[in-house]
C-alpha cells in the first residue's frame, strides 16, 4: 500500500488550489474577501473596511457589499466543491492548472436579517444541488455570533461546460 503523503504536502496543495480560485478576481480583491479552509470546509471572511459602509450614520455595511460578499462565497464554494475530487485524486496540479472557469450567476436573492455592523463578517455556502448545468447554493452570513445570522442568500448558477465533454 502507498504511504499517505505528508500532511504539509496535502495542505499546501489544497491551499494553492484555493488561492488560485479567487486571487485572480479583481472585484474579490477590491472587497478584500479571504477564505479560511478546514479540510474541504470554506469560510469566506470579509474584513471590515470603511469603503464597505452604506449608512454612515448607524453605521452599517452596504447591502450591496453584503450581497457581493455572499455571492462571492457561493461562487467560490461551488467551484471549490467541483474541483475537490480531482484535486484529491491528484488529477490536477495547482501549480500548473488554469484558473477554473467560474459558474455564471442566474439569480441571487439576499435576505437582510439585521444591519451589518462595522466589523468583520463571515459566510459559509452550502451547495444544495449541483447538476451538469445548474446548481443551487445557499449562503449564511454572520458577524460576532454564528447563531445570529445577519444575512442569508440563495442563488442559482449555470455551471461552466466541462472539459471531459
Amino acid at each position: 500500500m502507498k504511504r499517505p503523503e505528508p500532511v504539509q504536502v496535502v495542505k499546501s496543495r489544497r491551499d494553492a488550489a484555493l488561492t488560485k480560485l479567487y486571487s485572480g478576481v479583481p472585484y474579490v480583491q477590491f472587497l478584500g474577501v479571504q477564505f479560511d479552509r478546514r479540510g474541504d470546509e470554506l469560510t469566506a471572511v470579509l474584513p471590515y473596511d470603511e469603503k464597505l459602509i452604506g449608512n454612515p450614520i448607524l453605521p452599517a455595511l452596504h447591502g450591496g457589499a453584503i450581497a457581493a460578499f455572499l455571492e462571492t462565497a457561493a461562487v467560490i464554494e461551488l467551484t471549490w466543491a467541483s474541483l475537490w475530487e480531482q484535486l484529491e485524486a491528484g488529477d490536477v496540479d495547482p501549480e500548473t492548472m488554469n484558473t477554473p472557469r467560474m459558474p455564471k450567476t442566474i439569480d441571487f436573492t439576499v435576505d437582510y436579517l439585521r444591519s451589518g455592523l462595522p466589523r468583520d463578517a463571515y459566510a459559509r455556502a452550502r451547495v444544495n444541488r449541483s447538476g451538469r448545468r445548474y446548481a443551487s447554493v445557499h449562503v449564511e452570513a454572520w458577524q460576532d455570533n454564528r447563531n445570529r445570522l445577519f444575512a442569508q442568500a440563495t442563488g442559482h448558477f449555470l455551471m461552466p461546460p466541462r472539459d471531459d465533454g
Binding site: G24, V25, P26, Y27, V28, L31, H62, G63, G64, A65, A67, A68, F69, E71, T72, T99, M102, T105, F108, V110
Partner: peptide, 16 residues
C-alpha cells in the same frame, strides 16, 4: 471585474 478572462463586471457590483 469578476471574470478576468472577459473583463465582465462582477455581479456583486451590479447588486450594489
Amino acid at each position: 471585474v469578476g471574470d478576468p478572462e472577459t473583463g465582465v463586471i462582477h455581479g456583486g457590483a451590479v447588486s450594489a
